[in-house]
């Protein structure tokens, strides 16, 4: 189990590095998709199917939207004649489909059955809440067991502020004549 997780993490890191150094906007976005779908498989390996479902929906929506925007805005498909035959594409799609089906059939039997909710995490939270030293159970969870999640929330807020300042700024914008 550990080795699959390491492979997925290495793939995700390689994908993000490739998206930073890609010459083309489209290939950068596609290699960013590797990171997102690798995260889906990592969530499945870490026994978090709810997060995996959310991540797969988010990833498909954002990737499709971004690719549609890039195709309609910048990418000229006519100029790029890629020299592979259609059999090569069909073979690639077939290989990846088989790999994905194998991974799914191998790792879905470790999950709990559909409709049966597993209360494993909730039990751990309730039993080990006094360990955090916080009388308020919610704060004990938010800042002790799930402090990493809280860091993400605070980072989302900072990113939102940076976005507002960037969109609304007056100096540094190009002025229309």
């Amino acid at each position: 189990m550990e080795i699959y997780l390491v492979i997925m993490l290495v793939l995700m890191i390689l994908g993000s590095i490739n998206s930073l150094h890609a010459k083309d906007l489209m290939s950068a976005v596609i290699s960013l998709g590797i990171v997102g779908f690798g995260l889906v498989i990592s969530f499945l390996l870490l026994y978090a199917p709810d997060l995996a479902i959310v991540q797969v929906v988010i990833e498909i929506i954002t990737l499709t939207t971004t690719i549609a925007v890039i195709v309609s805005a910048t990418y000229e498909l006519e100029k790029k004649k890629i020299g592979y035959s259609s059999g090569f594409y069909a073979g690639t799609i077939l290989i990846f489909t088989v790999i994905i089906l194998m991974v799914v059939s191998r790792f879905t039997n470790i999950l709990s059955y559909f409709g049966q909710h597993v209360m494993r995490m909730a039990d751990i939270y309730i039993k080990s809440a006094p360990e955090s030293g916080s009388a308020n159970l919610v704060t004990g969870i938010v800042l002790h067991f799930r402090a990493y999640d809280t860091l993400g929330e605070a980072t989302v807020l900072v990113t939102a502020v940076i976005g507002v300042l960037t969109i609304l700024r007056h100096s540094g914008k190009k002025k229309d004549n």
Binding site: S132, G133, S134, T139, G140, L143
Partner: peptide
């Protein structure tokens, strides 16, 4: 003053 770093983080 309890709970370790939880009040500081708050």
């Amino acid at each position: 003053i309890s709970g370790g770093f939880i009040p500081i983080g708050n």
